[in-house]
Design a protein around this nucleic acid. Structure first.
Lengths: 131, 131, 131, 131
DNA sequence: GTGGTCTAGACCACA
DNA sequence: GTGGTCTAGACCACT
């Protein structure tokens, strides 16, 4: 399965689908021209209402990351390398901004902050090698 | 007391109040034994319904960060230094976790990630000196 | 689902709902995965404002006894047998603690105390057989 | 100090004062004709609003356990032995009733219930010997 | 359909 | 004065 849904963390399901697809596109896991799984199939795979998937796909289309070919389906759009990298940076930067401003408000020194990050990178590195 | 509400970002008001008060308590801006602004006063200050504030206060009490003295008001509870620092770390770590896992998924190398952080710290440092 | 509200005993309605649901869950009358009556339905059944029910449900969720499935409803969560029995014991012990400490302060001997209990158990046994 | 107030358990302070005085009277710790501490003194001793003590005293008077002698103060009333014992039993029975009915609803067998009680009696016995 | 949030205004117990 | 509870009704996001 390509998408992981957490049904209990409060993040809307369509948002989880949207975010993960966006990431897969800009990171190249889904490549240009590749067809997306149909709304119906993905919905039944995730045991989720088709409307939910449909909403995620529509938003993805509005972002220009995906193209609709009528009667056929949705395909990953051509995204210029530069735009890809912009999106990537933007995604991370948005989250980081909150983290840093919070840390400063809490008086957590930059060194401790960097340590937390190093630990998290280790954690994910381990997971990647043996998921 | 300074609380900033963004009425249009979708985050429930009571949550914004709750989060900011929690931060002020664990960061020491609100100190032990200090009385919180009354529900009615804070509500009128923020131009918000008293129940909204009440809800935030109730959750804060359930977290044990605040104590009710019946008929008098709410006061910042004694929070052991260790618990304070646990909460602080937890708050930051929650946000950071998302940032790091996203960065990894996007293939952003740790070096670039650290650069982004350094830049953000600079930005907030500047703001602090001359807000 | 059977919930009895006493509108005049001073105990908040949301508390009565909360306590009774909690008991029904840990006693197994509501079983894992079962869907709770919707906020609106229970509210109209008890002739009470939906927010009152909502509050009880929210607290039940915070206790981890119930899970939200967004847009669908609330369901009884998986509660490990051990946790169930802890909660049960805690509920009874809280009440008993007061009873025993009071009895001791009043100089009521343990024998008389046990007699009172035996009589009460008889009374409820009778009721159960022919309510 | 003769009265212990718990400021954080939600029980109204006047009620804690009332209950404890009632118990002290029917258990003979306060004997017939003995003068109660003045409202003012007890209030300052407990660091509590005098109105709170006053309310407890007034309710005690309504129960007939205490007599007001105008200009002098309040005195423990003559309470016939039988009435004393009735009150004692009633106090304990009220609390026990809830405990037993709850235990039955939760399916806690009488044996386990008795064990809980035995344990509690031990606990309080220990405390009495070395408080 | 579901639950979550918020409002305006009321009443209550407590101190 | 304090906070707690409740109502009636509204709007929202999610499924």
């Amino acid at each position: 399965m390509l998408i992981q849904i957490d049904y209990h963390n409060g993040v809307p399901i369509y948002r989880q689908v949207l975010d993960q697809l966006r990431q897969q596109i800009v990171s190249g896991q889904l490549s240009e021209g590749q067809q997306l799984v149909s709304v119906r199939d993905l919905a039944s795979e995730l045991k989720v209402n088709p409307m939910t998937i449909s909403k995620a796909y529509a938003l993805l289309e509005m972002e220009g990351l995906v193209e609709r070919r009528r009667g056929i389906g949705l395909f990953v759009a051509k995204v210029p390398k530069q735009r890809q990298s912009e999106i990537k940076t933007r995604i991370v930067q948005q989250i980081l901004d909150r983290a840093v401003s919070t840390a400063i408000q809490l008086g957590i020194p930059q060194e401790q902050f960097q340590q937390l990050i190093a630990r998290l990178f280790e954690k994910y590195d381990r997971q990647e090698r043996q998921p």
